[in-house]
Nucleic acid binder design. Structure first.
Length: 191
DNA sequence: TATTTGATTCTT
DNA sequence: AGAATCAAATAT
């Protein structure tokens, strides 16, 4: 079942937690790429200094203020495309960053790697993700067992002051994901 | 108009 | 510890 717009029209933390374990499906015309969502981060409102919408409504952040269920794709560090899905009612800016998926038994760990693996770039910015075209989310009925969903502080947002340590990153504990965690994470703790 | 800085990843 | 690489934000 394709996740409909109503699914994303809810409190962002609720959507983020429930999105882990769901599936991200990419259609580029030559077969589907399906990834089970392992890790996401929530960015919520203009108060959240880590959220791009904290800078106000600009050409870049406009999509965050729009209706839920749309893609927010932007370039980071000059080389990595970041995929987000917009949440909450129109007028309230919030989104969820897709950080890791499991694809054909392989862990694709990192938002830049994820978009590269699925062939996602800024051309998909503002696309409706509830139509079942190009890119969408699916609930395949697989339940996430209790106790395997952990929350952590978000990555790379040390500049965000008190907002930096909010536990708005959600990650599934799997055999795959526990094997190769840290390192790139530690380097992000620099100023 | 110029400089700084990231929702990162890969190499040394 | 540093490079790669660029658009948006901020300073000038």
């Amino acid at each position: 079942m394709i996740l409909p717009r109503d699914y994303f029209d809810r409190p962002t933390l609720e959507v983020a937690r429930s999105l882990v374990g769901k599936y991200l499906v990419r259609d580029q015309g030559s077969g589907l790429i399906v990834g089970r969502i392992i890790e996401v981060e929530a960015y919520i409102g203009t108060e959240d200094k880590a959220c791009h919408a904290s800078k106000g409504r600009t050409a870049r952040t406009d999509v965050l203020f729009g209706p839920p269920g749309h893609a927010y794709v932007y370039l980071c560090y000059g080389m990595y495309e970041m995929l987000n899905v917009v949440t909450e009612r129109e007028g309230f800016p919030a989104a969820i960053l897709l950080r890791a998926v499991e694809c054909d038994g392989r862990l694709i760990d990192g938002p830049g790697r994820l978009t590269r693996a699925l062939g996602i770039d800024r051309r998909l910015n503002r696309c409706d993700l509830t139509l079942g075209q190009s890119l969408w989310f699916e609930d395949r009925g697989t339940a996430v067992p209790a106790g395997v969903l952990n929350s952590h502080p978000r990555i790379g947002v040390e500049y965000a002051g008190e907002w930096a340590h909010k536990p708005w990153r959600f990650r599934l504990t799997t055999d795959l994901s526990t094997s190769r965690r840290p390192r790139t994470r530690l380097s992000a703790s620099k100023k």
